[in-house]
Design a protein around this nucleic acid. Structure first.
Lengths: 153, 153
DNA sequence: ACTTCATGTTGGCACGGCCAACGGTGTATG
DNA sequence: CATACACCGTTGGCCGTGCCAACATGAAGT
């Protein structure tokens, strides 16, 4: 989807299916995040935000812990942390009491950046939920949570 | 997200945000689709289903039309159609009255396949909406539609 | 001691979403 | 008519997210 101008119609087979709508809505959300982070996020991505959020909330943690809390694969955690580290937003040191671990902690500069990303995120929620009444927003979030938290059967 | 066992907790910053929940829910949906299509879909992907759906509904069309109707980029349409063609699910021929176009039509075999993919898709909706009451399903779909159809400001 | 497991890292793949550029073709304008 | 413009299919590339396999290291359990 891009390039050519008008969106065109949508096949009925897709139009009514929740999975299709879900995908489209998520695509919109992802696009907003991409644009927002590109403009006001210093080139960071969703992965970075997730990691900083976990660090802010629970303090220093090992990479494996971070992965579990953010739903990011260990390998991807490594890559994203390297980037955060090179930006001075995060520091890593081997756990002296468990030398296979690396304890990651957020720098003050990282905390600042997190707060500015928060603002971007909040703006995205607004754009996303714009067409909804406050009551609908509540319903929507609640229902979404039930679907998202479903056990992976 | 994989490998390591337990999911772990989720930062509050993410937990409540619609954009986060939307992404997670969509990820679940995508995973179900991937698994379902891998098992009962003959190795086809979402793109293929979208294209077949458009062809079934409106009959033969040019690739650009298909792209507009399915929300797939021209280049990706080309690739997906090549695959569908090599599977005998679709045929292409240059429009004699407009030689820059290629008119794509679905073969009977393609129609059969579409119907079998429909079944997979229906199963996915069920898994996805399982935790919801019928009333909630309606609300959810309606709200989702409003969000998904929002104009790209 | 030996096995088993967790950790971080590397390197790879899939999928959806995009964009740029090109050659070929049609249409509209000068 | 010639020229510019817009469209079409194709190629080739990039990104972000979600995964998986394999490996070396270190720790824990037997």
């Amino acid at each position: 989807m891009s390039d050519y101008g008008e969106p065109g119609r949508t096949p009925d087979r897709l139009k009514g299916r929740p999975s299709w709508l879900l995908g489209r809505a998520a695509a919109r959300s992802a696009a907003l995040l991409r644009e927002g982070f590109a403009e006001h996020g210093g080139g960071l991505r969703g992965y970075h935000y997730r990691l900083l959020a976990a660090l802010e909330q629970w303090g220093p943690a090992s990479q494996a812990e971070l992965g579990r809390d953010t739903g990011i694969d260990r390998s991807d955690v490594t890559a994203a942390l390297l980037e955060l580290e090179s930006l001075g937003l995060v520091e890593r040191e081997v756990d002296s009491a468990n030398r296979r671990r690396k304890i990651v902690s957020m720098t003050p500069s990282g905390a600042d950046r997190l707060r500015s990303l928060d603002a971007v995120l909040d703006g995205i929620q607004e754009s996303l939920l714009a067409p909804l009444t406050p009551a609908q927003r509540g319903q929507f979030t609640a229902i979404l949570a039930r679907i998202a938290d479903q056990p992976r059967e």
